[in-house]
Amino acid sequence: MRAHKLTLTALAVAAGLSLTACQNDDGGTGQSSPSSASSASSSGGGSGSGGSDQGGGKDSAGKDSPGQSSAGKGSAGQGTAAGAGSKESGKVAKCRTDELGITAKDGTIDGDPDGTVVVELKNRGGRSCTISGYAGVDLKTNAGSLSAKRTGEQAPSTVLKDGQSTAFGITYPFNTSGDSGVRVTGLLVTPPNETKTVSLPWPGAATLPVTDGSGSPVKVGPIGSAGQGG
């Protein structure tokens, strides 16, 4: 009987040791699972902007810090681009229609074979601006709109400080046919590289000779062709 009890006791001890070993093995498996889950979470965070934002409060955010440093460099790059843009904006901008005071006056001198109208453009924009080329010029008449033709002269570039002026000339033939002819009712001026037009009274002769259809008898010179004032 004593030998039988010793055998049962030995079996119980062996079973206990086996159970303890199984529990230890299960605990090791349980510890490995959170580690795998953490790796998946970190991987998911790096795959999208939303994930990287969520990872900001975790230890993995420290691993993402090189990415944040890269973003800082990107911001610096944008700053450099902005700097380049500011240099571009530092150049003298083109004169806009709304910044110009535009007037027209008769500039005909006795003895000239043709009549002349001088159009003055004064910078009232509060800053310097540049202007060059030919203005668009149309005469309003009782027979419709009549566009002036460019003279073909070289158009210099002019920088106008605030308050300075430049001018160009419009030439047209005199009407020597008496009361007949084309009656001029107004003048339309569009500054170079602009689409906004200014309507002005026509200060020249009241009428133009009837054209023979060979082209416009009205000519326009480039900006600066009629002198420049301060």
Rank of each mutant, 00 (worst) to 15 (best):
2 R>H: 07
3 A>L: 15
3 A>S: 14
4 H>Y: 14
6 L>E: 14
8 L>F: 07
8 L>K: 10
9 T>N: 04
13 V>R: 09
13 V>A: 13
13 V>Y: 08
15 A>W: 08
15 A>F: 09
17 L>D: 00
19 L>T: 10
21 A>Q: 10
22 C>W: 12
23 Q>I: 13
25 D>T: 14
26 D>V: 15
27 G>W: 11
27 G>V: 13
28 G>E: 06
31 Q>M: 11
31 Q>I: 14
32 S>T: 08
32 S>Q: 13
33 S>P: 04
33 S>W: 14
34 P>V: 05
34 P>W: 14
38 S>T: 12
41 S>D: 07
44 G>L: 15
47 S>D: 07
48 G>T: 15
50 G>I: 15
51 G>A: 05
53 D>C: 07
55 G>T: 09
55 G>V: 11
56 G>K: 08
57 G>P: 05
58 K>W: 11
58 K>I: 08
61 A>L: 12
61 A>Q: 13
62 G>M: 09
65 S>D: 07
67 G>R: 13
69 S>W: 07
69 S>N: 02
70 S>A: 14
73 K>C: 04
74 G>T: 14
74 G>K: 11
76 A>Y: 04
76 A>S: 04
83 G>E: 11
84 A>Y: 12
85 G>D: 12
86 S>L: 14
90 G>A: 13
93 A>V: 11
94 K>I: 07
94 K>T: 06
95 C>E: 02
95 C>W: 04
97 T>Y: 05
98 D>E: 15
101 G>Y: 11
104 A>Y: 10
113 P>M: 12
115 G>M: 15
119 V>W: 12
120 E>W: 09
120 E>Y: 09
120 E>G: 04
121 L>A: 05
123 N>Q: 11
123 N>E: 08
124 R>K: 15
125 G>M: 12
125 G>V: 03
129 C>I: 11
129 C>N: 01
130 T>G: 00
131 I>L: 10
133 G>P: 06
134 Y>I: 04
134 Y>K: 01
135 A>P: 00
139 L>A: 00
142 N>R: 09
142 N>F: 03
145 S>Q: 11
147 S>Y: 06
148 A>Q: 06
149 K>H: 00
152 G>T: 06
153 E>N: 04
158 T>Y: 06
162 D>T: 08
163 G>Q: 12
163 G>C: 09
163 G>T: 12
165 S>K: 14
166 T>P: 01
168 F>M: 05
169 G>I: 07
169 G>Y: 07
170 I>T: 02
170 I>A: 00
172 Y>N: 06
173 P>S: 03
176 T>L: 08
177 S>N: 15
178 G>Y: 10
180 S>K: 09
181 G>C: 13
181 G>S: 08
183 R>Y: 04
185 T>H: 05
186 G>C: 12
187 L>T: 03
188 L>Y: 06
189 V>D: 02
189 V>H: 02
189 V>C: 03
190 T>Q: 01
191 P>N: 00
194 E>H: 01
195 T>A: 09
196 K>Q: 14
197 T>A: 03
198 V>C: 07
199 S>E: 15
200 L>F: 10
201 P>T: 12
202 W>I: 06
203 P>R: 06
204 G>N: 03
207 T>Q: 00
208 L>Q: 02
209 P>T: 00
213 G>H: 01
213 G>L: 01
214 S>W: 02
216 S>C: 02
220 V>P: 02
222 P>N: 02
224 G>R: 07
